[in-house]
Design a protein around this nucleic acid. Structure first.
Length: 845
RNA sequence: GCCCGGGUGGCGGAACUGGCAGACGCGUCGGUCUCAAAAACCGAUGGCCGAAAGGUCGUGCGGGUUCGAUUCCCGCCCCGGGCACCA
């Protein structure tokens, strides 16, 4: 008989970590005989020490992975590092080390922490995106996209972060126009940059959101809003010369409301529109227009994006012809027209658009009503007016809802509004005459992927004076990022002649290598494929291996990537599918966005000084207690408030469980005469809890699953104490083993120590099948029925579980308490909910 | 302004398709053990009235549906997040 010893995580956690490593417990082998499950957490940026957000993210994933393995799945659970990026450069400047050194040191540090946490990652599949063996395939993807005409280099107004000193993609400008990484206000600059044509996939990216049943609605909504599909029409307006006569050229606008064309009384160009200068240079209007252009240029992104900037405008002196009525309307320039949406030109309909309305009022332009609400008195007056009889409406604001079209020629009387009959009729009319067509416009822009930074994946392209842009041939990959760039002096690849001086792969003449690197989001858009075949040196991955594991069955990460990483990854996956590299068109079947870890109501962070270091907690309470605590305190998708006393409570719980299992393991299993009734209660509880825990984990009720385990431990302790010598020791052993198995995904070290050393099993607890349960044994044979009189609980009756309604009713109506409350009343109705409740309705006689 | 979440004891949180509100844990109070303390264990713990039995109120606020509402419907308030001159 063993002497039971206290629970000491320090003694057991390290021990099992090395045993598991020696046994290769976490190394994954593809096994076609079992169903596969790919469990993935977003790979970390190697920022240094791990924080509670990591602990939470990876603890959730580890429970899912270990639980799935015990349930019989062939589980892939890998980890890696998103290792390129600006923080390494900033840290390098600060501490005078090389970004590579800083990065690899941090990766080692984090990897030790992950091991100390007991996460079950396959060490043979680790990828680090700054390894040449990894990023060369990122370059290969770039070339493949180029072959498929999905790469473009073009000049355009782009987002520039003055602090990061690089351009940003639209998705990376968040909130009130700030950089996603450093929160600086971004500026607009006209620059030539590299783009991935994600807009080619806009429709599919939108449509396939509907297939993602395992994603939170809120993430899908955010993506749909970001893609921003709107249906409408393109309309061509003929441009007039300075004398007012139509020229051959046209300007096209996008509108969702072609039904309001008859109310279009002016026309607008964005200040950045190339035609602005062309139309006004050397005219009396030039100065006024230039003033507006200058105002717009001065506005910060915040002001412009918030719509708070005052609407200013200037007449260009030119006119266009409204295709529906031949009217010549003036062309203005205004700061409320955006160059990067639609065509940068807008048909202004002041009666139907609040912005146009305000502009018209400010500049004295007419506001003829063309779509009138059904209850507007104006409708009677204008119902049959085909020609414009009312040039200016008295409304206080524009009306953009549905209504009747008036003063609209042949279309007068039709229904107007978004996607209305009138909208379709006008568009068809335009299409017949070749001056318009149905069109769909997306808010999504192409993905700007070039970055003017050193610590990233070099773009494999060459600028040749005679051949233009030339891709680096596949057999010349990788373009290796040189290590001898002195970042502390602010150098980039553009300062490194040894890197950029090259010959043209096409004409062999001297040429300049591209010195921009790729957005780090390109690295994170395919790493989950690479995990399937992480060490392949001949190909990005073997499609057969990707075919085995992909798509990811459960992805877990922060909501901050609702658009960014998750949208880019969906795009890459669709391209890979089109290339035949995978059959998956969506990378992540189920997505869990975990909540944040907070303290005193605020996000934990070093800068706020409220961060609790996971390593300190591991040292004091052990990794298992930390894992159990962080999973118990809140459901995974909700924010969690840190509470040190809660962690201590979880440590105590593990101690109680430890003691129970130890005591049971130490006792002789013979020589007692079990008390049947007491044992039956414990047996029932054992089966009920196994069922509850199983179902809860499947639905991410990780906190309630733990609560159920606590209930079973409480019941087992009660049994042990109450039944004394009459307790059922065989059942106790069964319950002790069951609890050890149930807690294994949460507390991998303690459960292993209990399973192997205390309970004496040979094979790891993490290789055991998940405990089974029998619903029949879990069901109570007697149930307590609540008796209500007029909605208030007045008593309870205990009946057998299969008692019929009549039995329940008779028992309930025999209760003295019930009779007391029924005195002087007549029973009108009795509702019986089987197994739960009986409700008696009575009213005065 | 629009779109999502959310509001339950002193605290974190439970409550499957409408059926005993507050599981489980923390904290607090009382007790056992101890010379004492810690640990551990046992018990109590939503408010109000009551010695108790019991009664009564109670899931942000106001209505409604229902035998019965934290759950469903209508109208508000507050908190968090996302989007926002998108033509």
């Amino acid at each position: 008989m063993r002497v039971s010893r206290p629970y000491d995580p320090r003694a057991i956690e390290q021990k099992w970590q090395s045993v598991w490593e020696d046994e290769g417990l976490d190394t994954v082998v593809e096994d076609g005989s079992r169903p596969k499950k790919y469990v993935l957490e977003m790979f970390p940026y190697p920022s240094g020490d791990i924080h509670m957000g990591h602990v939470r993210n990876y603890s959730i994933g580890d429970v899912v992975a270990r639980f799935s393995a015990m349930r019989g799945y062939n589980v892939l659970h890998p980890i890696g590092w998103d290792a390129f990026g600006l923080p390494a450069e900033n840290a390098a400047i600060k501490s005078r080390t090389h970004p590579a050194e800083w990065t690899y040191t941090n990766i080692e540090k984090q990897w030790s922490s992950f091991r100390r946490m007991g996460f079950s990652y396959d060490p043979a599949r680790i990828v680090r995106s700054c390894d040449v063996e990894y990023y060369r395939w990122g370059q290969w993807i770039f070339l493949k996209l180029w072959e498929r005409d999905l790469v473009e280099r073009k000049s355009s107004p782009v987002n520039w972060c003055p602090s990061c000193k690089t351009v940003l993609a639209n998705e990376q400008v968040i909130g009130e126009g700030v950089c996603w990484r450093c929160s600086s206000v971004v500026e607009k600059r006209e620059l030539e940059q590299w783009y991935f044509k994600i807009t080619r996939y806009a429709q599919e990216l939108l449509d396939d959101l509907e297939t993602l049943e395992g994603w939170p609605d809120r993430v899908k909504t955010m993506q749909a809003n970001w893609i921003g599909r709107s249906e409408g029409a393109e309309v061509d307006f003929a441009l007039c010369d300075a004398a007012g006569e139509p020229t051959g050229s046209t300007i096209t606008v996008f509108t969702t409301r072609p039904d309001t064309l008859f109310g279009c009384t002016f026309f607008l160009l964005a200040p950045e529109h190339p035609l602005v200068a062309e139309l006004t240079v050397g005219t009396p209007y030039e100065a006024g227009v230039q003033a507006v252009v200058a105002t717009a240029a001065r506005e910060t992104a915040v002001e412009r994006a918030s719509g708070e900037a005052e609407k200013v405008g200037a007449f260009t002196g030119r006119h266009v012809v409204n295709p529906v009525n031949g009217e010549r309307i003036p062309v203005w320039v205004s700061n409320y027209v955006l160059m990067d949406y639609g065509t940068g030109a807008v048909m202004a309909v002041p009666c139907g658009d609040q912005r146009d309305f305000e502009f018209a009022r400010a500049y004295g332009l007419p506001i003829p009503p063309v779509v009138v609400p059904d209850d507007d008195p104006l409708l009677e007056e204008l119902r049959d007016a085909r020609e414009r009889v009312k040039a200016d409406v008295e409304w206080a604001e524009a009306y953009d809802g549905y209504g009747v079209m008036v003063q609209s020629g042949a279309f007068t009387g039709m229904r107007g509004g978004k996607a209305s009959e009138g909208m379709k009729a006008v568009t068809e009319w335009l299409a017949e005459r070749g001056t318009g067509r149905f069109a769909v416009n997306f808010r999504l822009r192409d993905w700007l992927i070039s970055r003017q930074r050193y610590w990233g994946n070099p773009i494999p392209a060459v600028h040749c004076p005679s051949c233009g842009l030339v891709p680096v041939p596949e057999d010349q990959l990788p373009v290796v990022l040189p290590m001898d760039v002195d970042i502390t002096k602010g150098e980039t690849l553009a300062d490194h002649p040894g890197f950029y001086e090259t010959t043209c792969p096409s004409c062999q003449g001297s040429a300049r290598r591209e010195t921009d690197t790729m957005d780090t989001f390109t690295c994170s858009s395919w790493y989950y494929f690479r995990y399937c075949d992480a060490r392949n040196t001949d190909a990005i991955w073997d499609p057969a291996k990707a075919g085995h594991w992909m798509p990811v069955d459960q992805y877990i990460g922060g909501i901050e990537h609702a658009i960014l990483h998750l949208l880019y990854s969906r795009f890459f996956t669709k391209v890979f599918a089109d290339m035949g590299l995978t059959s998956a068109r969506e990378p992540f079947t189920n997505l869990l966005t975990q909540g944040m870890v907070k303290k005193d109501g605020e996000t934990m962070s070093k800068s706020k000084g409220n961060a609790v270091a996971p390593e300190d907690m591991i040292a004091r309470f052990g990794a298992d207690a930390l894992r159990v605590f962080i999973l118990f305190m809140a459901p995974p998708d909700k924010d969690l408030e840190w509470n040190q006393e809660g962690l201590e409570g979880m440590f105590r719980f593990l101690g109680r469980l430890w003691r129970y299992v130890s005591d049971v393991a130490a006792q002789s299993a013979t020589g007692t005469d079990p008390d049947r009734a007491a044992a039956r209660t414990l047996l029932r509880e054992r089966h009920r809890v196994v069922g509850k825990v199983t179902g809860d984990i499947e639905h991410f009720g990780l906190n309630t699953a733990l609560a159920a385990m606590m209930e079973l431990l409480n019941a087992a302790s009660d049994h042990r104490r109450m039944a004394g010598d009459a307790r059922d020791t065989a059942l106790e052993r069964e319950v002790a083993e069951t609890l050890t198995l149930l807690i294994a995904p949460y507390a991998p070290h303690m459960s292993e120590e209990l399973w192997r050393d205390i309970l004496g099993h040979e094979v790891s607890v993490h290789r055991q099948p998940w405990p089974v349960f029998d619903p029949a044994l879990a069901a109570a044979d007697e149930v307590e029925i609540v008796v209500q009189v007029n909605g208030k609980v007045r008593g309870r009756v205990t009946v057998s579980a299969d008692a019929d309604e009549r039995v329940v009713r008779e028992a309930a109506l025999a209760l003295p308490k019930v009779l007391e409350h029924l005195e002087g009343l007549a029973v009108r109705k009795v509702v019986v909910v089987p197994g739960k409740l009986i409700s008696i309705v009575a009213t005065p006689q």
